[in-house]
Amino acid sequence: MEDRRSYKVVIVPDYALNPENYPHLPQHLKIYEGARDAGYGVIKMPPTDIPEESADEWVEITADMIEEYLNKGYKVAVIAVEGLPDKGVWFSKLVKELESRRTMPKILEISRGELEADGEQLAEKIKTVLS
């Protein structure tokens, strides 16, 4: 059977799929839609209000996935969003963990202004990060 995988994966904050959990931010799915339309597989981080010790485990699990994909030649990016605690992806811990493993995906930072602007620019930014 034909395997249609893209070999491209993005790590996204919970906000990207569940904006209703973050009423202070724009209520749209533009990050999800950008990743979907670019053909990326999505690894979603948990909600940002989970306990710290639980978050540590999710960061480790996510770092394991990133390391495995990069080792096998897949393209990987982390999408970090301004306005979320530690950019919605436990950015400091995740980067520290990945640095300790000597591996690093691309990082795509999205500002509050970009979230509020026309979706086309945001979609293009997401599409080109792993092109």
Partner: peptide, 22 residues
């Protein structure tokens, strides 16, 4: 949500199973 995790030969979509998530 991530078809890149499928065992080889079984990814039916490039990334997200879009009809399902949408």
């Amino acid at each position: 949500i991530n078809q890149n995790a499928k065992v080889l030969e079984f990814a039916r979509y490039p990334g997200v199973v879009a009809p399902f998530l949408d």
